[in-house]
Amino acid sequence: MNGVVLRVDALHKAFGGVQAVEDVAFAVSAGELLALIGPNGAGKSTCFNMLNGQLEPDGGLIEFEGRNIVGMSPRAIWRLGVGRTFQITATFASLSVRENVQMALYSHAGKLTQFLSRFGSELRPEADALLAQVGMLDQAERPCGVLAYGDLKRVELAMALANQPRLLLMDEPTAGMAPRERVALMELAARLARAQKIAVLFTEHDMDVVFSQADRIIVLDRGRLIAGGLPAEVRANRDVQAVYLGSGH
């Protein structure tokens, strides 16, 4: 297939005899937003952690730009051009917003081993450009430890974009945010991704965000994919309604 950035096939993982992820297969293309949804405990996080190298799958294929990345460390996967954000924000609390982004840029440029020069003197315009993209430039000097939650999410997004990724993995990007902020954040991510032709895979609980932003949706239940397709198709799917959406939607 043309433009496929991430291809997953026959992915398996069991914990203590219980199949957490079973025979999962899907693909994401450049500039596409794919949402992975499912009830709690369906295996979304397990799936995600196998993609980013945190967990090793028991079997299956994970191909990034045609290259099998199974068994690679999170670090190596990042170096290939995969960015990620976390469900619970993970930023460097004692560093300023700008320094957080600079840290990712320095790492990408291989400049972290310098021992006596002062950190922060380089790559400043690049950091500010990323911060401007996510609307955080005006808070560049503040330490991340005092930021509001929604702002931390934006900083994370800027950090995830620092290595010019071709694939962005976002684990519950809007968890813990106010409803309006949620859609706004995901809209921002979607706009940036489409403009830069980044493939995005995200998990999400908020159905308003999923149905308004995703190009396609896949649904996981008890470790298996039970449905996939355009938002309207998934919304109409009876199995999905039964396990997840309920009658309210």
Binding site: R75, F92, L95, M103, L112, A162
Partner: peptide, 16 residues
């Protein structure tokens, strides 16, 4: 300092 604040994030931006 970054690694102390968040080892997870440090690893995720390619830091050994």
């Amino acid at each position: 300092r970054a690694g102390r604040d968040s080892p997870l994030r440090a690893e995720a931006i390619g830091i050994d």
